[in-house]
């Protein structure tokens, strides 16, 4: 129940309209620090839209997304920051960010929310190693004196770059791609590309890692490896995970907390066991007898 006691991200009354279409309607849920939270729901339920709002790719029509990067989210501090109109507040309890007010790259770099994409977005013409180095852009940029010192070859850039390579190597070992470090990312098989995208997101040192269907297109063995990797990210890297997934074997096995969406509305929220036994969820997935609830089964 960490999402109640120590929420990392509090989504409140999130609404996203595209013209007349309401993709998300007054959605509220919490993401617990140190949890693997799964966001599930039938196709078209609005899961990816929620992701795009959290990571700043969409500006939500309404709603608040308070992100307590460090420490406890203090409701008074959240209220003060909301009233001040600012994006960030360093409170005694920890750093607080208002994600709905921040542009996407600042969400990634300042608030430390990393993401992957449903249709893999690797830099396919760059090597596997380069992909992981690009992910460490901001610290390296600072080390190179915003390129001014780096181009003249002064400053500690070389050392920092070696450290970045070491970190990339560590991740390549973990995802089993160390032998392919110098191959173009576009040449990797599908499953390896999925793993690389996760490693690339992890190279940005995120506090929250958002994965959009990480198990899509993986075979059972790769799925099991993914489960292991995600658990390691939660337990060893102390990074909370928010994932969209259709593969129930992944969702039920690894998540600590499941939020179910249907037609942009939250229909269930709880532990995997609670959600699995929720009649509303069963109705949404399998189709209810009720005429009004004829949602399609998930793909």
């Amino acid at each position: 129940m960490r999402w109640r006691t120590n929420p990392l991200l509090g989504v409140e009354h999130l609404t996203m309209r595209f013209g007349g279409l309401v993709a998300i309607n007054d959605l509220s849920f919490d993401v617990g620090r140190g949890d693997i939270t799964a966001l599930i729901g039938p196709n078209g339920a609005g899961k990816t839209t929620v992701f795009n709002c959290i990571t700043g790719f969409y500006k939500p029509t309404e709603g608040r997304m308070a992100f307590a990067r460090t420490g406890l989210a203090d409701s008074n501090a959240v209220a003060r920051l909301t009233a001040s109109g600012g994006r960030f507040a360093g409170t005694p309890a920890g750093d607080l960010y208002m994600l709905e007010r921040m542009p996407d790259h600042e969400i990634a770099w300042r608030a430390r929310v990393a993401r992957t994409f449903q249709n893999i977005r690797l830099f396919s013409g760059m090597t596997v190693l380069e992909n992981l180095i690009v992910a460490q852009h901001n610290p390296l940029m600072r080390a190179s004196g915003y390129s001014l010192l780096g181009v003249l070859g002064i400053g500690g850039y070389k050392t920092r770059e070696r450290e970045a390579v070491a970190k990339a190597e560590m991740w390549l070992e973990r995802i089993g791609l160390i032998d392919r470090a110098d191959d173009p990312a576009g040449e990797l098989p599908y499953g390896a590309q999925r793993r690389l995208e996760i490693a690339r997101a992890m190279c940005t040192d995120p506090v929250l890692l958002c994965l959009d269907e990480p198990a899509a297109g993986l075979n059972p063995r790769e799925s099991a490896e993914l489960n292991k990797l995600l658990r390691a990210i939660r337990d060893e890297d102390k990074t909370s995970v928010l994932l969209i997934e259709h593969d129930m074997s992944v969702v039920m096995e690894i998540s600590d907390h499941v939020v179910v969406l249907d037609y942009g509305v939250k229909i269930s929220d709880g532990t995997p066991t609670q959600v699995r036994n929720d009649p509303k969820v069963i109705a949404a997935y399998l189709g209810a007898d009720d005429e009004t609830e004829n949602a399609e089964p998930s793909a």
Binding site: T55, T116, R121, G150
Partner: peptide, 20 residues
């Protein structure tokens, strides 16, 4: 340097760049 890699990454995929 990071800036050059960012240029090439931008050519490859701008949305992925922003997510990083």
């Amino acid at each position: 340097l990071p800036i050059g890699r960012a240029w090439e990454a931008l050519r490859e995929d701008e949305i992925a760049c922003r997510s990083l």
